[in-house]
Simulated assay, not measured.
Amino acid sequence: MQNEQLQEILNEYGIREPEITFIRHNENRTYKVEDHDGSTYLLRIHQPVKDGMAGQQHTYDGLLGELQMLEHLSGRDQLLVQRPLRNREGKLITIIEHEGKRWNSSMLTWLEGRDLQKDDLSDPVMVEKLGASISELHQFYGQYVQEGLDKRPSQGIAYNQYMIGVIKQGLTKELFTFSDVSVIEETISLVNARLKDRRNEEAWGLIHGDLSLGNIIRTRDGELSFIDFGFFGPGYYYTDVAMGVMMVPSELRDLFLKGYYGNDHAGQDELVLLEGFMLLAIIGYYVFQMENESVHAWMRERMPKLCADYCKPYLSGERIFYSV
Rank of each mutant, 00 (worst) to 15 (best):
I9Y: 02
I23N: 03
V324E: 01
G214Q: 09
L79D: 02
L273E: 05
M303S: 07
F256I: 01
A308H: 15
E202V: 03
N192H: 11
V145M: 07
E34W: 01
F231R: 15
D37V: 06
I96H: 05
V125E: 15
Y322E: 13
G38M: 02
T21W: 03
L195C: 15
M126D: 04
D119P: 01
G262I: 04
M107G: 12
E202C: 00
S135P: 00
K32A: 14
D77R: 12
I320H: 08
E128L: 12
L42Y: 01
R88D: 14
G65P: 00
W110H: 10
V145E: 12
V49F: 13
N263A: 14
F226K: 00
H138G: 05
G230L: 11
E147L: 08
L85N: 04
D120K: 05
M278S: 14
E17C: 10
Y261R: 11
R152H: 04
F288R: 13
G62A: 13
G142H: 03
D221Y: 10
G90P: 07
Q47L: 10
R220A: 14
R220L: 15
G259K: 07
I157G: 06
V191E: 07
R102A: 11
R198I: 04
H208N: 05
S135F: 13
L70W: 05
T30I: 12
L224D: 02
Q56G: 01
G62Y: 06
S133I: 04
R86C: 04
P153S: 10
Q117L: 15
F22M: 08
D120A: 05
K305L: 14
R86H: 08
L6S: 07
F176H: 02
I217G: 03
S316P: 01
F140D: 03
L6N: 04
Y261P: 00
K258V: 01
D37R: 11
T187D: 10
Q2G: 15
N215A: 04
S106V: 09
H58N: 15
E147W: 01
R199P: 06
V49P: 03
H265Y: 15
D150N: 13
R220Y: 13
D309F: 02
I15F: 05
Y237E: 02
H265Q: 12
N215M: 02
K32P: 05
I207R: 06
G55F: 07
K258P: 02
L43R: 02
R199Q: 13
I95E: 14
E318C: 04
Q57P: 00
L6K: 09
K312Y: 09
G209E: 07
A54L: 12
Q82L: 03
N11Y: 06
V125C: 07
G113K: 06
R194I: 02
Y310D: 03
R300E: 14
H208D: 02
K91F: 02
K50S: 06
E293K: 12
K196F: 08
Y236A: 03
V127M: 12
